[in-house]
Design a protein around this nucleic acid. Structure first.
Lengths: 204, 204
DNA sequence: GTCTATAGGACGATAGAC
DNA sequence: GTCTATCGTCCTATAGAC
């Protein structure tokens, strides 16, 4: 097996294991076993346990940004590309986010677990999640700017509602339809959003 | 030191450590050290590591129910006491919950971390949190019944918003005023709640 | 009720052969 | 690129003295 696909395999396996155990509960032995390797074999590819975590998060970010852009029909870019985000419709972006997340509960669980673990300042992923929250809030706020009196507050509400509903869904995936519930819950939230005259469906 | 207060000390120390590390990252050695005991000394009081976790959660539940009842001016009972919950005002209960939680970030962080970890079906606290979610949703729903068209959906929204805002607050305790933001975010949510003619401020 | 001593593993990581 | 072998550290839990 060549370097690239072996690395992909390791990251995929780790993603699932972190979702089940969290980072503190993750063992290199388990990763190696599920990959059909030994522990030093895994470490050869990722350097250390912390390096493995970072690799998983970065890998997921690029993959996710691409998928989200495709889902929205954008040519390229992601949520970090803040040019002209005012022209983007927040409700549609949220719907796309939720629709995509609903299809991959494992990765969402990974984020839920790590997000809580990483509240501790000495967690290897602490600053990653701190920056991520700021980035998402800024993007949401910019999309809401000019259409509501308190864009920052709307951004916080949207993010909070999403995170909270995710937990309920993950705990009960069979009874809760994530996307359907999101639409029902978020609908009233977006009800009084003003549209701008130059509203477009994609940035740039 | 007598049995009871030694046990209290162990539970308090464990609470803080779980908040920092999660349950998988908790070590009996750390607990023993911070208590000025040895590991067997701690195990003597709680039986096992799992037993320690259960003890922490149960201890917190009783303590929290009592404090919440006091905050609302109730004579006794807690959220599990569902008699006549229709007569209770949901907004006031939520405000009391948030006000209390805002004063104890460590315990809130413990719940946030465990809540995510316990999404895995084989986690020792999995069923505890599954039951807890059901219990809280039922209570909220009952408080909203007769005052809104979709009480279950309002219950889910309230719980989701609370959990989500908690994460944002915990990640940034100095910049986010938990109670203040809750009032701002939840206000619109409760705006169209109808009051009942026999509305009282306490049950029974 | 708390201790010492220790069993019996699992952990992350390194060195060096192939 | 993956292995074997191994180091040193950490872990939960038990047995038995005081």
């Amino acid at each position: 097996m060549d370097v690239a696909s072996r690395r992909e395999q390791i990251l995929a396996v780790t993603t699932q294991l972190i979702a089940e155990r969290g980072f503190w509960g993750l063992s290199m032995q388990d990763v190696a076993d599920r990959c059909g390797l030994t522990v030093p074999g895994v470490l050869h590819h990722v350097g250390s346990k912390d390096g493995l975590l970072v690799a998983v998060l970065e890998h997921r970010d690029t993959q996710d940004a691409r998928a989200l852009a495709a889902e929205l029909g954008w040519p390229a870019g992601d949520l970090t590309d803040t040019r002209e985000l005012e022209a983007v419709a927040l409700p549609e972006v949220c719907a796309a986010l939720v629709r995509r997340n609903a299809r991959q509960p494992e990765i969402v669980r990974l984020y839920a677990v790590l997000e809580s673990e990483a509240l501790a300042p000495d967690h290897p992923a602490h600053s990653y999640f701190a920056q991520r929250q700021r980035r998402v809030l800024d993007a949401f706020e910019q999309m809401a700017r000019g259409r509501t009196a308190q864009p920052r507050r709307l951004a916080m509400t949207v993010l909070a509602l999403m995170d909270g509903l995710q937990i309920q869904w993950l705990r009960n995936p069979d009874e809760v339809d994530f996307f359907h519930e999101w639409e029902a819950l978020a609908g009233p939230l977006f009800a009084d959003l003003r549209s701008t005259k130059s509203r477009r469906t994609k940035p740039v």
